[in-house]
């Protein structure tokens, strides 16, 4: 599971959907793996405005990455500074959580990640 995907995931429990505390989920005991993936600048520049930047900042810090700026840099700024774009590529696309958990801060449920795959099936008492 890549860091970018964390930005689109939330708790699967119905009653958590309307709670701000359920997003983002928080990684716990995360084992990270770094892949070597070619940067697709066009694709990444188009994805960035679709992210919830505040949630990404939270997750990046939780995973031990340097603090991100308060606001998403503009497209022009990123086009002019390849290093900035590459750093984001590294965080979002090249970094995977292979093992660990994702925790919902609303209900406290922990979803396991094994071999890079998170399991969101709920125990019957949470369905």
């Amino acid at each position: 599971m890549k860091v970018i995907s964390l930005n689109f995931l939330t708790c699967a429990v119905k009653s958590c959907k309307s709670s701000g505390a359920a997003f983002p989920l928080h990684p716990k005991d995360a084992e990270l793996v770094q892949d070597d993936i070619e940067l697709n600048a066009q694709m990444l520049l188009n994805i960035l405005p679709r992210l919830d930047w505040a949630a990404l900042r939270t997750n990046a810090t939780e995973l031990g990455f340097p603090e991100l700026p308060a606001e998403l840099p503009t497209r022009e700024a990123l086009e002019a500074d390849e290093k900035k774009l590459k750093d984001l590529h590294h965080l979002l696309v090249e970094t995977q959580i292979m093992e660990g958990k994702l925790v919902c801060r609303n209900c406290g449920h922990e979803y396991a990640i094994r071999e890079g795959i998170a399991n969101f099936l709920l125990p019957s008492h949470l369905v």
């Binding site: 890549k2 689109f8 995977q96 795959i117």
Partner: peptide, 17 residues
């Protein structure tokens, strides 16, 4: 490049609205 996949039920999807 590995695909991004999760185990989830279609009636309890884990995606941000």
């Amino acid at each position: 490049r590995l695909n991004e996949v999760t185990v989830a039920d279609s009636l309890a999807l884990p995606y941000r609205a």
